[in-house]
């Protein structure tokens, strides 16, 4: 059988060959060296993250990499994984049974690996809201308070692959065509989730005069009605 020589397969081989005891710090460190990490900055940079995803056969065109960042690594930045996040994920993360030897399933084929991966690229519906909210933090640069449209729109566009998001398409159109803002602030970002869930398709009863939604949504509804 031919296995592609990817880092994760290396990882699994390494683990399976050593012991059935829990993962020890030295082991995590070893894995850190295997992945494409930037030793000086002590983090996995975007290209390393990309390689990691490719190795895990996670499609970069899907929300899966982001979901994994959120679920597996609890990452604070999109496409970055810090050393701390890495070791935490590998030792304590509840979604990380893969590398815990106690639960270890011998990965002898790509299929087994992919089956395990499915666990941390799917989201419990209850966690969707939290996931959505955390996207804002994950996606925006740390030194800024808002998320520019160039980043926000591609991320929003991925959401329907996880769950249908009403009004998303028109909202994105509104942001792209009308360009009412250059960036979304946290309030606008957070509110969109609620907004999308609670609005009926034709916005019946939406009163621009009295709504408590951020002004951006008033403009959006106004724009749609025109």
């Amino acid at each position: 059988m031919h296995l592609p020589c990817t880092s994760l397969v290396l990882i699994s081989r390494l683990i399976s060959s050593t012991a059935s005891s829990p993962l020890v710090p030295s082991m995590i460190q070893t894995l850190w060296f295997i992945v494409d990490a930037d030793r000086e900055a002590d983090l996995i940079p975007p290209d390393g993250f990309q390689t990691l995803c490719q190795d895990l056969q996670i499609d970069l065109e899907t929300p899966d990499p982001i979901v994994m960042s959120y679920k597996l690594f609890n990452a604070s930045d999109l496409c970055y994984i810090t050393h701390l996040e890495w070791s935490k994920a590998l030792t304590t993360n509840q979604y990380m049974p893969l590398l815990h030897t106690a639960n270890f399933v011998r990965i002898d084929s790509l299929d087994t690996l992919k089956n395990r991966l499915a666990e941390f690229t799917t989201l419990d519906p209850d966690h969707l809201g939290d996931f959505y909210k955390s996207l804002f933090n994950i996606a925006k640069p740390n030194n800024l308070k808002s998320l520019d449209l160039e980043t926000a729109i591609p991320i929003l566009s991925l959401l329907p692959q996880i769950r249908p998001v009403p009004h998303l398409e028109s909202f994105i159109a509104f942001l792209t065509v009308k360009q009412p803002v250059k960036a979304l602030n946290r309030d606008q970002w957070n509110c969109f989730w609620e907004f999308s869930k609670s609005m009926d398709p034709s916005f019946v009863g939406y009163n621009i005069e009295t709504s408590a939604w951020p002004t951006l949504f008033d403009e959006f509804v106004d724009w749609l009605k025109q």
């Binding site: 308070k145 808002s146 602030n185 946290r186 309030d187 957070n190 509110c191 609620e194 609670s198 408590a212 939604w213 951020p214 002004t215 951006l216």
Partner: peptide, 17 residues
């Protein structure tokens, strides 16, 4: 709009819809 600005400036925050 002023409420929006104040939320952004973190004088106030939205706790519910």
């Amino acid at each position: 709009k002023c409420i929006d600005i104040l939320i952004e400036k973190e004088y106030i925050q939205r706790v519910d819809k």
